[in-house]
Every structure is written in structure tokens, then in C-alpha cells.
Write a protein that binds this DNA or RNA. Structure first.
Ligand SMILES: [Zn+2]
Ligand SMILES: [Zn+2]
Ligand SMILES: [Zn+2]
Ligand SMILES: [Zn+2]
Lengths: 159, 159
DNA sequence: ATTCGTAACGTTATATTATAACAATTTCAA
DNA sequence: TTGAAATTGTTATAATATAACGTTACGAAT
């Protein structure tokens, strides 16, 4: 029901980043897990935009003076961040996006704008329920529903 | 609305394959596109099971006397088969599955059984509509909705 | 039947994404 | 303090996908 719109172009993204990192601390503390330096760095990089970010883009962005960490380091951090819901995987792009919202692990629908690359999120119970109902009719017990929708966001539609 | 159930274990799969290939001919003829030898071979391999098949599994299965075609050949055939709706991509698995059904390009929901690996398909308008409604509320113009659901199929639930 | 443009395929090389295996280090609590 | 578990480092490799370009096959028009 709680429908999160796309971030406006030109918004103060610093605030998104700050809020994201504070939120991350909270989430991890509550869950009794550790937001280590590596995990924080990866989240920071992914959070720098609302677009999908590839694992190797993260890797590159984390590079300090030509010294880069190994891919596995990024993937490990990503796995962790996904496990606590701070990052979503966008499987149709083999990429990732930071979750700037506050849903609590309930299924999300990802909207991917092909024009500007931004990723929006919906948390529509009706969608989840429709899937649930349809699956049940087929006797299928849902583990996890992945909904990824490509298209054009509101800002790009009017532009 | 038209809900396709999972194929029963032990069903006569030869019939599925035959039907699939006949259907493929029809579809291609109607669309005025060519179901070439390579494309046919790729579809045959993927159609051999109701499971998700990786591109390199196809490649391996197409091998004749140690002579294997190049990956690009398989990917090209896959792109073609997807374009005419004879194959679906399962992006959460980086794999593909033959479409044994007769929906006409309308959005499909893929059900992936983690127990037996089988892939079922739904064509629930209610799901598509719920997504459409939710997206519209956010001002998002849908290009294509991808719905992939992992879980346990009816046969594996009772087993 | 010949010609010509396009679609399909072959060939080689390479890009991109992701994980395996095992050692070293850090953390936290008993 | 010390020992088990979690995290990270290091090296190597697996798995998935595409680029570039030349050749062949097909089908329509002359
Ligand atoms: Zn922002
Ligand atoms: Zn956009
Ligand atoms: Zn079958
Ligand atoms: Zn099953």
C-alpha cells in the first residue's frame, strides 16, 4: 500500500545518503549484526545513486590509489546487505540498488526506468496478494516473489 | 486467468516435446520468421525438460562428437526464440525455459520449484493488472513486467 | 537463372559476473 | 586470556554473455 515514488531529479541526495547510513546502523544494531567497514563502504557506494549498480562498478568505486579489493569482498558485503534488506538485487540487470526505504523485509516490486536508470520501489500488498492467490490456485508454496518492472518513470515521461 | 499447472512427474514428456516443436513451426510460419536448424536444435534441447536450462548446458547438449558450437550461436538462437515467445528467460537463475503453453506474448509469471527444479507458468491477468495499477499510481509507464516466484510446486509439497 | 540485399551463421577473441578454497585476522564473550 | 566464530585477505577460476568481422544461405526482384 505504501507507494514510494521515484526520487525527484535534482533532489538533495546528500540527505538520502545520510539517512541511508543512519538507517543502516539502526537496522544492524537491532538485528545484532555487524556493519563492518567493508560493508559500510559498499553500501555507501551503492547508495550514491538511485540507479542500479553493478558489483564491479562498486569494486571500481572502492578503489583507493590504484589498490582495489577482490570481487569476492564486494559480493560478500552485498550478500550481507541483502540479507538485512539494505540492498536489493535487480536480477534482470545483474545489478544492485540500495534500499532507501523502510519496509521490513516484505516483498518489494522494483521499477526500473530505462530512460534515466533510476530504480523505484513499490510495496504493494495487492500485487503480492495477487501473486499469492494465483500461486495457491496452482498449489505452489511461495518462498519469495521477485517482481521487476522495466519502463519509464514519471519524471522521464513528462520530460 | 488461464492458470497452467505444473507438469505431472512421470507424464509422457515426448508429447510435450512434439507439441512444442509443432507449435514452434506454426508460430514462426505465422510470424513470417525462420525456424532454422540451429534455432530448432536449441529449442529441442531446452524443451527436453520443464526445468530451467543454462545457456552452457544447451551448448553442451548440442555437442556432436566432441564438436561444439560457439556460445554466441546459442545466445543468438535464444534471443530469437525469446523474441517469438517460445522461450522465457529466468533472470533470477540466469537460465531459460521453453514455453510449452499458448499464451500470446501477454505477461507471464514464472514459478520455480526449488525442490524439483521444474518451472511452471501462470498467466494471471489479476497479477498483471495489480502491477499495472500500482505502477500507474507512481506515474510509471510499464514496458515489461517480470515476475519470477521461487518456492515449492504442488507435486513436491505433497511428496 | 542471375543478381543482389538481407538474415543467419561461423570463427575468434574477449568482456562481464560470480564463486571456490584456504589462510590470516579480528571480534567478542567465556 | 584464550578460544571459537565471524570477517576479511589472497589467489585462482568458474560461469555467463557479447563484440567484431568475415562467410554463407535465403529469398525476392530483375
Ligand atoms: Zn537521493
Ligand atoms: Zn526515469
Ligand atoms: Zn513435459
Ligand atoms: Zn517441484
Amino acid at each position: 500500500m505504501k507507494s514510494q515514488s521515484f526520487p525527484k531529479p535534482g533532489h538533495d541526495h546528500e540527505r538520502c545518503v545520510n539517512s541511508l547510513m543512519v538507517h543502516a546502523e539502526t537496522v544492524c544494531r537491532k538485528a545484532g549484526v555487524r556493519l563492518t567497514e567493508q560493508r559500510r563502504r559498499v553500501l555507501e557506494v551503492i547508495g550514491r545513486s538511485h540507479k542500479a549498480t553493478g558489483a564491479y562498478d562498486v569494486l571500481e568505486a572502492m578503489e583507493i590509489k590504484g589498490r582495489r579489493t577482490a570481487p569476492i569482498t564486494v559480493y560478500r558485503a552485498l550478500d550481507f546487505l541483502m540479507s538485512v534488506g539494505l540492498v536489493h538485487r535487480i536480477s534482470c540487470l545483474n545489478a544492485f540498488t540500495a534500499c532507501h526505504y523502510r519496509h521490513e523485509q516484505s516483498p518489494v516490486q522494483l521499477l526500473i526506468c530505462k530512460a534515466c536508470g533510476a530504480v523505484g520501489e513499490l510495496e504493494e500488498h495487492k500485487v503480492t496478494q495477487a501473486i499469492q492467490t494465483a500461486a495457491a490456485k496452482a498449489g505452489f508454496a511461495i518462498d519469495e516473489p521477485f517482481v521487476e518492472v522495466t519502463g519509464k518513470c514519471a519524471h522521464c515521461c513528462t520530460a
